[in-house]
Nucleic acid binder design. Sequence first.
RNA 1: GCCGCCGUAGCUCAGCUAGGUAGAGCGGCUGGCUGUUAACCAGUCGGUCGUAGGUUCGAGUCCUACCGGCGGCGCCA
Length: 430
Amino acid sequence: MSIRDVLDGKLTEKEVEIKGWLVNKRSSGGVQFLIIRDGTGTIQVTVHKDEVAQKAFQDTDRLTQESSIIVKGIAKEDKRAPDGYEVRVKGLRLVHLAEQEYPIGKKEHGVDFLLGYRQLWVRSPRQVAILKVRAEVIKACRDFLDENGFTLTDSPILTPAAVEGVATLFEVPYFGDKAFLAQSGQLYVEATIAAFGKVYCFGPTFRAEKSKTPRHLTEFWMVEPEMAFFTFEDNLKFQEDMVTYIVKKTLEKRSKELAVLKRNVKPLKKAEPPFDRISYTEAIQMLQKGRYKIEWGEDLGTPHERFISLKFEKPVFVHRYPAKAKAFYMQPDPENPEVALCADLMAPEGYGEIIGGSERIHDLKLLEQRIEEFGLPKKAYEWYLDLRRYGSVPHSGFGLGIERILMWICKLKHIRETIPFSRTMKRIYP
RNA sequence: GCCGCCGUAGCUCAGCUAGGUAGAGCGGCUGGCUGUUAACCAGUCGGUCGUAGGUUCGAGUCCUACCGGCGGCGCCA
């Protein structure tokens, strides 16, 4: 029996039992108003002095914020209640009397304070709403892939070598040797496509980047689909469909939570295929016209991404970056080998990159050459090169950052709210 | 890592410009109110002013260093 059921009017005039936590308490002497939360919703319950035992009324008066209680009473429809329904209490049982001075107050708090009390902050309505949306976004990702013939093949978290730079890897001792926390599962899903065709991995990834920004975590979750026989073009179309599905499902199932977040859903509804596309070269021209000092060959920075992102109403692909600025495994464009067959998907409203993807090099010789050009240790990549020795096929894939897309969907100012316990350069507690 | 800003009660902040011995709101506690909506009303508890040094008769206030945090940037999902 949940608060949600009472708020939906299913139990009106029936006897109900609510198990939950005290959010707030008001009183007007003879009537006490308790606001109770149970994870499905929040409701007001009223305790009338002349309707309960004297002890029950006194106990109610002693209740502290966040005390856990079980109340029995009659569900009522009442215009005076905050959500139109309330429970008129007949009996109340105290499960645990919370200590005085619950740290999270009714008024505003600073970010540092709240993060230090994240274990309690997650109970707040706004945080509950965000984490509900998070769960929905993750479910949507997995449902979409599972329904489209993908097989989940999880990649290891402890890895022997870097995909990209070693500088951004967390090093861990490994039986007298060194291991690193994975910063991508991509290389491993490239292996499993030859077994399953279409695969994905989903899990936490770790980057020891010293980036102190509202868009970076050192531990974040990424879904990485990889598809055999997919061209660059197939890849982009698939990304469009997937992002559209995620946004639609979230709008459908989490409208209440988005309302709690005061998210204007109009921009989200515009996310329908086809998404806009511009080449990196066009992006540079746009930026130069916008009076940004940037030359062809330089990577796009945060202000650049924001500028482009604000120019479009739906997500926009920026494709064909200079090969030199991108990862070693990206397939060069046959029409212009200076650029790679890669694309980043920028979320609108100034949010910027939420996906990075590319067609991968499938030719052994070319891949060996690139590993050498990038100064990477060939030995470490022998297993990866095997994939080009035995039944190599053109293939493509991408990585979707869960927290990044969530930031956009919820329109958050900072990524640290998108995950239950954020890990940033400056904070690893609690 | 670089640039900028900020550390005063449990929390959010005022006090600093022009140095004179610490204040509000919220929360807690006590009391009042039989329909409250971050309820309200009265009272009350609560602070080595981030740390260390310096200037001064006197430092929350001025100076120096350090520590912690926030915002922006770089790197990236």
